[in-house]
Design a protein around this nucleic acid. Structure first.
Lengths: 359, 359
DNA sequence: CATTTTTATTGGATCGATTCAAATTTCCGC
DNA sequence: GCGGAAATTTGAATCGATCCAATAAAAATG
C-alpha cells in the first residue's frame, strides 16, 4: 500500500483520470464539481477510475487560480503567532472572528512575523481574500504593507490618522472619561497612568512632546479622555505621571517601580489595558499594598480574566467579540467602501476600585 | 485615486506590466522574484511601470500553482473554530505549533466544521501543505477525510488503533498509573473516574462492554492504567463508577451528580482531563465538599489553568507545547514516513490531593 | 421518419504566475 | 576589431483545475 503510493513520481491530475476513463477533462471536472450534470453511468466510471488510480480529488491549488476566491481571511499581527493564543484580548477578538467565519464556512489564516523582512513576505504571500490587522506595535507598517496587496482589509483599533483605512474601534475618549470620572467620584486626587505606546519602540515616562507627536491616536485619545475629565475635577493633569509600556510584564513592572519611586504616591491608577491593570494588581499585592484599600485601579478592554482575578477588576469594557464579528463580516461581504465604525464602551465596576483613603 | 482603482475592471497582471514595460514575462517575473539577475536599468523601468499602473505584486494564487508549496499548515478539528482560542489544552498546543511555524516562517490555517458536510469541504479545499488533527469527538471521521487529501498529516493523541497514521501522543497507561498510585499511596480506597469518550456521541456510565469496544484507545489506555495500578493495591476496580463525558461542563456535572447520587461516595476522583477536574472542583466546592479534605482530585493534561485555580490541581502533565512543536515539524519536514511518537508524562503534585479521610 | 428540443460531452481558452533551455547582448583581452 | 566567456533576455511549456461555446447524442414532438 505504502509502496504503491511512493511509486507515483507525480501526484495524479484530473487530466490523468480523464484520459484513463476515456472522457474529456471537462467531463472529468464535472464529475467532481457538478456531478448532477453528468450521466450516471459515466460518472460512476470516472469515479471508479479515480478511486482505483488513487486520485486525491481536485487539487485546491488548481481550482483556486480559476475561482479567484480563497475563502479564507487573514488575521495579521506583528507579534509572534502565539500572540493569538496567549493574549486575552486577542483571544476574545478571535472568538468573534471565528464566529463570523464559522457561519459562512470561511477559514482563518494566521499571519505574523517577529522580524521585519518576513513580515513583508508573509503579508505578500498569504492566500486570503482580505486581512484583519491587529494594530499594536508597528501597526502603521503593517497597514502600509497590507495596502500594497490591494485586498480588502480592516484595522482593529481606530488608532490611525489615516481616514482612508477601514477600521473598527471604540470611543477611546469617552471610555477614558468614564474611567477617570469613576475614580474622581470616589474621591481620588492623586493619579498615575499606565499608558500604551504613543509611538513604536518606546517605554518610559511620556513627555507632553511625545504625547503631541503620538503616532497612535488611540493612546492619545485615551490619555486625552483621562485628562479632560480629571481637569473638570480641578486636578492638575500636568503633574500626573504617564508611563509608556509595551503592554507586557516587564515594562509594566518597570513603570510601576518608577511611578512608586516618586515622592507622592498615587492612590489611583488608570491603566490603558486590562493586561497592565492585572499586572499592576499583582505587583501592588506583592509590595504589600492593598487593592483597592491603598490603591484603586481601572483597566481598559474588558477581558474575561479581569472578572476572575482577586480583586476582580473594574474596567472599561469594549464589545470585543462584536468587534471581531464585524471585522470579519466587513471582509467577508466587502463592497469596496471604506468603513470606520466606532463602538460604544461601558464602565464595569468590580472590586479593584474603592473610595480614596483619607489624608 | 479610488475612482482610478475602480476603473480597472480586472486587476493588473504581471503580463500587463511586462507588455507595458516592453519586456518578456520571464524578465518581468524576475524583477519581482529574483531582482538580482536583471539589469539595474531594466529592473527600475519595470518597477516604475508597475508602480504607476498600480500593480499589487505577483499574485500568490498564480505563484502557488507553479510552486506547489503553500507554506502553511492546516490545523483541523471537529469543534467550532473558537475551540482553538477557548480551550486551554488547545491553546497550549497551538502555542507549540505556532513556535515551530514562526521559526520557519510558515503560516497556520485553522480548519473546522461544526457540521459534517462543511467539514468534508473544508478539509478538501484547505490550502495547506499538511494537516495536524485535533482528534476529539469524531476524530476517526476527521482522519478518514484527511487521508483522502493524500497530504502529510499527524494525529494528536495516539488514540487510534490504526498504525498507518502518524501520531504523537503520550504514554496514557503510564500516566494513568502515576495518578492512581499517587491517590492510593495517600490512602484512598473509594474511587470514581470522570472519563473521556470511548466512542462518539456517548455519555453516561461506561459498562465493561463499552470499554472493550472502545474506538478511542487513548481513553481505554488511561482507564486501563488506573485499574491496573489500583488492582495492585487490592482495590476491586469492578466497583469503580466510570462516567463518560463530552469533556465539557454539562456532561461533566451530570456525571458528578450521578456519581455522588450513588450510595458509597468516592474520596478520590480520577479525571481524564484537567478540564473535567477543574469543573469537578467547582462542583464539589459548590456542594460544600472540601477539596482535598473530603475529596481528592487528579487531573490529566497539565494545562496552565490548573496551577491557578483554588486549590491548585494535582495532575498528570503532558509536554503539550513540545507535542505541538513536534507535530508541526513533522509536517514541515515531512519525509513520507509514518511516525508514531510517544512522549513521557509526569505527575505534578499540587493541592487538590491529600490523605484520605479516616473512616 | 424528419425535426425540434433537451441533455451530455468535448476541447480550447483562461486563471497568474515561474522555469529553463536557447537566443541574444554585453564585456574583455589581445 | 574579433573570438569567446559571461551576463541578460526571451518565449514556450507548465502548474491543475474550471468555464463555456460549440458539437454530438438522445429524447420528444409532429
Amino acid at each position: 500500500m505504502a509502496s504503491l503510493l511512493e511509486g507515483q513520481a507525480r501526484p495524479i491530475r484530473l487530466a490523468d483520470i480523464a484520459k484513463a476513463a476515456g472522457v474529456s477533462h471537462g467531463t472529468a471536472s464535472n464529475v467532481f464539481s457538478r456531478p448532477e450534470i453528468v450521466r450516471a453511468e459515466v460518472r460512476e466510471r470516472v469515479k471508479a477510475v479515480a478511486e482505483q488510480m488513487g486520485y486525491a480529488g481536485p487539487d485546491p491549488k488548481g481550482r483556486l487560480l480559476r475561482a479567484g476566491k480563497v475563502n479564507a481571511i487573514g488575521v495579521a499581527t506583528t507579534e509572534p503567532l502565539s500572540y493569538f493564543f496567549d493574549d486575552p484580548f486577542a483571544r476574545v477578538m478571535m472568538a468573534g472572528i471565528s464566529e463570523a467565519c464559522d457561519a459562512t464556512g470561511a477559514g482563518i489564516a494566521l499571519v505574523s512575523a517577529a522580524n521585519q523582512e518576513k513580515l513583508a513576505w508573509n503579508i505578500q504571500s498569504a492566500l486570503v481574500d482580505g486581512f484583519i490587522l491587529f494594530c499594536i506595535e508597528g501597526g502603521s507598517r503593517l497597514v502600509d504593507l497590507t495596502r500594497e496587496r490591494r485586498l480588502p482589509f480592516v484595522a482593529l483599533e481606530l488608532g490611525f490618522q489615516d481616514e482612508t483605512v477601514s477600521a473598527i474601534g471604540v470611543d477611546n475618549v469617552a471610555g477614558a472619561r468614564l474611567a477617570a470620572r469613576h475614580l474622581a467620584d470616589l474621591g481620588h486626587r492623586r493619579f498615575a497612568v499606565l499608558s500604551l505606546a504613543f509611538a513604536d519602540n518606546r517605554t518610559g515616562f511620556a513627555t507632553p512632546e511625545i504625547v503631541r507627536g503620538a503616532l497612535y491616536t488611540g493612546t492619545r485619545d485615551r490619555l486625552a479622555g483621562y485628562f479632560e475629565e480629571l481637569s473638570r475635577f480641578g486636578i492638575d493633569t500636568a503633574k500626573i505621571p504617564v508611563y509608556e509600556t509595551e503592554n507586557e510584564e516587564k515594562s509594566t513592572r518597570a513603570g510601576l517601580e518608577a511611578i512608586f519611586a516618586k515622592g507622592e504616591q498615587p492612590t489611583a491608577i488608570l491603566a490603558m489595558s486590562d493586561r497592565m491593570a492585572l499586572i499592576a494588581i499583582e505587583w501592588l499585592k506583592a509590595r504589600g499594598l492593598s487593592v483597592p484599600g491603598d490603591v484603586s485601579i481601572v483597566g481598559f478592554d474588558g477581558v474575561p480574566d479581569g472578572a476572575l482575578c482577586t480583586p476582580p477588576l473594574t474596567t472599561i469594557a469594549q464589545p470585543i467579540t462584536e468587534i471581531g464579528r464585524r471585522a470579519a463580516r466587513m471582509i467577508l461581504d466587502h463592497d469596496g467602501a471604506v468603513r470606520r465604525e466606532t463602538m460604544g464602551v461601558k464602565l464595569i465596576v468590580r472590586a479593584s476600585t474603592g473610595p480614596a483613603r483619607k489624608g
